[in-house]
Amino acid sequence: MCLGVPGKLVDVNRDGEVSLGRVSFDGVVRQVCLELVPEAEPGDYVLVHVGFALSRIDEEEARRVFELLAELPVLAERPEAVAEDAVGDATVLVAPGTTVKDTA
């Protein structure tokens, strides 16, 4: 229900009383109502819900998820057969040279 899809604002236009813009969702372009994000400009990514832009996507914030990842330990690569044997063993996921429990 609260589905929000990010898309790139291509241009802005008006239908009489209503501020609109064309938004590209990975190449599929739709008219979207911009009344609720009057500050949005062409080139911005906006979050679209039921035909309305609700929020501008903040690029800097968008990268934060990956910054957090950089702080997490890298998991050791394991051959499939070993992983199969280890089903049910929570220490399958390990940081380099250590076990999960040691990284706490």
Binding site: P6, I57, F66, L69, L93
Partner: peptide, 18 residues
């Protein structure tokens, strides 16, 4: 960035789960 696929990476998901 398209703000969709980047957030579905399996190895990244496993690292956060760990």
């Amino acid at each position: 960035m398209k703000y969709v696929e980047e957030y579905r990476d399996r190895s990244a998901a496993e690292r956060i789960a760990a």
